[in-house]
Write a protein that binds this DNA or RNA. Structure first.
Lengths: 308, 308
DNA sequence: CTGAAAGCGCTTACAG
DNA sequence: CTGAAAGCGCTTACAG
């Protein structure tokens, strides 16, 4: 049934007859048994924070397509940015025979590599880098630098003003991406001869709720809206937009709003929306190159695109 | 390692010692071998059209969460509304031992039930119904009726006008959901003493591109915008919004726009957006009820919610 | 009560 | 060249 008859003295005619009968009876090979014997399952596991935004859903969709085309069986599991769930999911995928584990935006990729290593299972990091496995990520610094510059150009600054009153909001202070994006944000200020205020950098988590709360507090402490906003992900953007929705959505039109990540509907909100679109197809291409021929534990950075 | 020691005369102390050593060595049980022997894999398979919209991504996310809570191993695969890929994916999931196959928005759910039946594998349909397995779907007729009524209320109709000039766009004429939504659309007209024009019902596929092309053609043939628009899914909405983006996004404010499906950013586009939000948590609750205790091949309809 | 054998559905090295 | 045995990592019915 698996084609090995070709290596035997079995006629094509007989083989076809057998295959035909098997097909009629609805025979489906048991890949679990095959995997057990061959010590090769063809399963490619992926853990990903969530499905419900364009960046991650597009990663999941492209990954599945390419994996199937390469003859693998893709299995994705979403782990809600919960490090404990990430470990459980990793073990579970290994239990089910995953040959290789792709960790997307994992809280602690090195901890997962630590689990897979003794079992001889490879790990590849995507979106957030680690040190124990090859990593493929966006060039967050450059993309953030460019996004910030573009927002600053659109700000309504007084002559001789040294500060921008531009707010950076959202993200996780412990993750590499947020750190690099803050760095790009700060450097873009300096590059323009401006300085960002300390309390204008609000790292309050990615979640919509926490971002909305944070933004609301910021506005009341600041006694008004900032000059412009840099939102760190579409997930956080939901929180910011919710605040505007509750307090007057038209105010969105008066303020330059940059968002790190892209969404087709969000891109059309307000008159001043600028979005960063990460290059998912290219990241996936690099991922399958890495799967096909393993390299060293280096970080590959992919350029993102500015969408206005 | 699997807990059966409790049925033997093995002391807890010894068991713990063994488990501890196994843990230190990074032992992970092989679920494929276990599944082979027990003839029970714990794998729950799901096929779904795409991940990249809120409705399907939320189904995927909730499914995974509940499956894991119920002790199953969820495996989702997206099949791009391609009937051939749906069959391949179904066979593939069966090969990997899926105990039960959940078909979400499948083009031909009965064809898949036909494949799984001989292997003794259950099928459950979600979103689109079939006749060979239990189905859990949205009450499309009622939701469409209500959405249409709400759009009609907002139309700027002349006194004595018999037609609404309200456009229905998007969807697939062969699928049950589109048929029911068109029925609700027509009946809501009649209920108001109005009639929909024939050429104002444009079933042009769900894809953004085909909807944009169709809308563009409609506007030029109609020599202008319709009075209002009923868009059949957020996927089709992307096409309509793209058209407005290219031709003047401000015009969105002047036209009541209803969309069957919900998206947090789309909900805030224009001043006249009305969205139908399908009740994913309730659908998932019913799904796991069905998984736990199989019923007959009936269709369960879940009410959707209107979001303004 | 418990050790050891049989067997799940495959693949492949080996004997004849 | 090819039939039949061994074995992948588990679980469980059975013998003693």
């Amino acid at each position: 049934m698996n084609g090995t008859w070709k290596r035997r003295r079995i006629s094509e005619k007989l083989a076809e007859k057998v295959l035909e009968v098997a097909h009629q009876h609805g025979y489906i090979p048991n890949r679990q048994a095959s995997a057990l014997r061959k010590n090769r399952s063809g399963v490619l596991g992926m853990i990903i924070p969530v499905y419900d935004n364009r960046y991650f859903s597009s990663i999941a969709q492209t990954f599945e397509k390419l994996a199937r085309e390469a003859g693998f069986f893709p299995t994705i599991t979403c782990t809600q940015r919960d490090p404990e769930l990430e470990e459980i999911a990793a073990r579970s995928l290994m239990s089910y025979g995953a040959e290789c584990l792709i960790c997307v935006g994992a809280t602690d990729p090195d901890a997962i590599a630590q689990i897979t290593k003794p079992a001889g299972i490879r790990t590849i990091n995507l979106d957030l880098p680690g040190t124990q496995a090859p990593s493929i990520i966006t060039d967050n610094y450059t993309a953030s630098f460019e996004l910030t510059k573009t927002i600053i150009e659109r700000l309504d600054l007084d002559d001789g003003q040294r500060t921008t009153d531009l707010l950076f909001i959202g993200g996780n202070g412990n993750d590499h991406n947020t750190q690099q994006r803050v760095k790009g944000f700060v450097d873009a200020h300096e590059d323009t001869g401006l300085i960002p205020q300390d309390n204008f950098i609000q790292i309050c988590g990615y979640e919509a709720d926490s971002t909305e709360t944070c933004f609301s507090r910021f506005v009341s402490e600041n006694s008004g809206l900032p000059n412009g906003i840099f939102v760190n992900s579409t997930i956080s953007l939901e929180g910011v937009i919710n605040w505007f929705h509750k307090t007057g959505i038209h105010r969105l039109n008066n303020i330059p709003l940059g968002c790190f990540d892209w969404d087709p509907f969000a891109a059309l909100l307000g008159k001043n929306m600028i979005m960063t679109r990460q290059n998912v197809p290219e990241m996936m291409r690099m991922l399958f190159k890495e799967i096909a021929s393993p390299s060293s534990n280096e970080v590959t950075q992919i350029k993102a695109e500015l969408v206005m």
